[in-house]
Nucleic acid binder design. Structure first.
Length: 618
DNA sequence: GCGGATCAC
DNA sequence: TATGGTGATCCGC
């Protein structure tokens, strides 16, 4: 099969094949490397490969839903057009005028993005891959090189679909450590251009080079040329860059001449307005497949089209979207750039997909395993959670979440399991004979367990002496909140807990019976997993008692050592908690919440794999 | 505040 | 045969 190269506008693809096929093309359709690919042909192949699968059926249902939602929006706009919205129009215009006054053209912001990063790193190790189409990530493609993109392969695409598009595609597994090390090499270089650069993900960063250009008496474009050259020479990675007056524009610009190119949008109001006028909405960070369709339904295809709809936006999409869209129309964005470590983390979670699973005993064993995984992450991140959220995905790909507020912040597997189990049991009752393909747990409303020193080390402000009074009143507020939580607790259906405990006892018996039959068949990331290794391995072999927590552990030496490490870090957490109790400090006040500017779709400080993030920041 | 949905990477 | 994991935000209720 040869690459498909006929050009076809996206809008035609939608018209001729319907929204479902457009949706099936995936979220990265507009990403670089797809220009000149015949999306119609690609869409056809994906459709045929997917048709009839459970995934496909779910996508079909979602698309139907969305189509209805969009019809409602269209209808609503028609209704609004018949009304006199003079007031709304003037209000919108006033807001736009106010925004215009706030425009800041004094800064030079750069967004840099490594080209097909994981694939590029793999090519350095395996030069033989350079001239063949290949992807990184099995099952689902994490990324692929530009050869593979010519066939329509994209990140997020199922591996078997990619193989249909490109039978000679080579798929190689992920090597996170390698990418992390390479990313660190790149960062070592860019820190010279802005010591306070902001990592947006493993392979992306924002820099404010205003000062660098001033002190070195160099033009922004030349500075970025030099930066890119330096990165290429020292790391053998090519990067693309966007240069503009703010982060939003810089991000868009870095996609303009990808790969291995740069684009500068002058800090000039007319140039910016002209650039935005013709820019498809989808190019803006925060506008995805859904919002793109919703905007299209009211006649907005480019950012320039936004102005004509100014009086409707708020009523159609809400106040936040109105603010976001007017910002897009004007080409405004934040000019602040700050290290990712200074952003406050809001949740810690883990989830995993497995072969279809049914039956309470398997569910509960999986939950136990998930709880233990989350505990490890909570300990690593040094947080407790005030809220626990359970997520499941049915075999039909429908997703459900349920959350609970424990009596006190939790992080240990036993507690995570204890509080999650009733939610799971209730879901089992809600959906009789339910089958699962994913389970996850997440803690939110985090309470930091980091030592003050650690916080200071990472640049967090600790409470100044003058603020002690505030800290104390925070403590009493916290106590009040806890009282309220425990009242809520009492209203929680106790019978569920009794149910859950009874079921758990039954599970243990069943586990003994079905041991090695049910679980061992399941695969997890290509290797066998046993949801509850402790319980299963202990049947035939002896326990080893942990010298710290005294609890029986698996005799597997590696796992045993891991457990000891865990116990030691737990011990550290307990020390911190005790310490803070003694000095009367409310740990949760040490890292005051930072307000973030509205920037739709912004997620920070995330990276492709937040677990890997720790390699860079902690 | 909860649960669903969307988005980024 | 077969479609990921982590984190954030917004909206409707």
């Amino acid at each position: 099969m040869s690459p498909v190269t006929e050009e076809q506008p996206q809008s035609d693809v939608v018209k001729e094949h319907g929204t479902l096929k457009y949706s099936l093309l995936g979220p990265s359709l507009t990403k670089p490397g797809q220009n000149g690919v015949d999306q119609q042909k690609v869409s056809e192949i994906i459709y045929e490969a997917s048709k009839g699968s459970k995934y496909f059926n779910n996508e079909e249902a979602r698309d139907k839903n969305l189509t209805q939602k969009i019809e409602r929006i269209s209808k609503k706009k028609e209704d609004l057009e018949r009304l006199d919205l003079g007031h709304d129009r003037r209000k919108a215009e006033q807001f736009i005028d106010d925004l215009e006054v706030s425009r800041d053209l004094s800064q030079t912001i750069v967004h840099i993005d490594c080209d097909a990063f994981y694939a590029a790193v793999e090519e350095l190790d395996k030069p033989e891959l350079k001239d063949v189409p290949f992807s990184v990530g099995k099952g689902v493609l994490t990324t692929c090189n530009y050869h593979a993109r010519k066939f329509g392969c994209r990140s997020g695409m199922a591996g078997f679909v990619a193989k249909k598009l490109c039978p000679q595609l080579i798929q190689i597994p992920l090597n996170f450590d390698k990418y992390a090390a390479k990313a660190q090499e790149v960062r070592k270089i860019i820190v010279d251009y802005d010591p306070r650069f902001e990592s947006a993900s493993i392979d992306e960063a924002y820099l404010n080079i205003t000062e660098y250009c001033n002190t070195n008496n160099i033009e922004p474009a030349a500075a970025v040329e030099q930066l890119r050259k330096e990165v290429h020479e020292k790391t053998h990675i090519t990067i693309s860059a966007g240069i503009a007056a703010n982060a939003k524009l810089a991000k868009i610009c870095s996609n303009q001449n990808k790969p291995n190119g740069q684009y500068q949008l002058p800090n000039d109001r007319n140039a910016i307005m002209a650039f935005m006028r013709d820019l498809p909405t989808r190019k803006v960070n925060g506008v995805g497949r859904v919002f793109e369709r919703e905007l299209d339904a009211v006649g907005i295809k480019t950012c320039g089209d936004i102005y004509a709809c100014r009086q409707y936006l708020s009523k159609l999409f809400g106040e936040k979207a109105f603010v976001f869209l007017t910002g897009c129309y004007l080409g405004l964005g934040r000019t602040s750039v700050q290290p990712a470590e200074e952003f406050e983390r809001k949740s810690v979670g883990t989830e995993s997909t497995f072969g279809e699973m049914s039956g309470p005993s398997a569910f509960h064993a999986q939950l136990r395993w998930t709880a233990e995984e989350l505990e490890k992450d909570m300990v690593r991140a040094q947080f407790k959670g005030r809220t626990l959220c359970l997520k499941i995905k049915l075999h039909t790909y429908e997703v459900f979440t349920r959350q609970v507020v424990p009596q006190k912040p939790i992080f240990e597997a036993d507690d995570l399991y204890k509080y999650a189990l009733p939610m799971l049991v209730k879901l089992e009752q809600e959906f009789p004979r339910i089958k699962l393909r994913l389970m996850g747990l997440r803690c939110t409303h985090l309470v930091s367990m980091k030592k003050p020193d650690t916080l200071a080390f990472f640049g967090f402000k600790t409470k100044a002496p003058a603020d002690v009074g505030e800290a104390i009143s925070d403590s009493s507020l916290k106590r009040k909140a806890e009282e309220m939580e425990s009242e809520k607790w009492e209203t929680y259906d106790e019978r569920l807990f009794e149910d859950a405990e009874r079921l758990e006892r039954e599970d243990e018996l069943k586990d003994l019976e079905s041991l090695g039959q049910e679980f061992d068949k399941r695969k997890h990331h290509g290797k066998e997993i046993v949801p509850n290794p402790k319980r299963t391995e202990a049947i035939e072999e002896e326990w080893w008692d942990c010298p710290i927590c005294s609890r029986p552990q698996t005799p597997d030496e590696k796992e045993f050592n891991e457990h000891i490490d865990l116990c030691l870090s737990r011990q550290t957490i307990r020390d911190v908690v005790q310490e803070s109790a003694v000095i009367g400090t409310n740990l949760s006040t040490l890292a005051p919440p930072k307000k973030m500017k509205l920037e739709r779709g912004k997620s920070k400080p995330s990276s492709g794999d937040p677990k890997q993030r720790k390699l860079f920041f902690g």
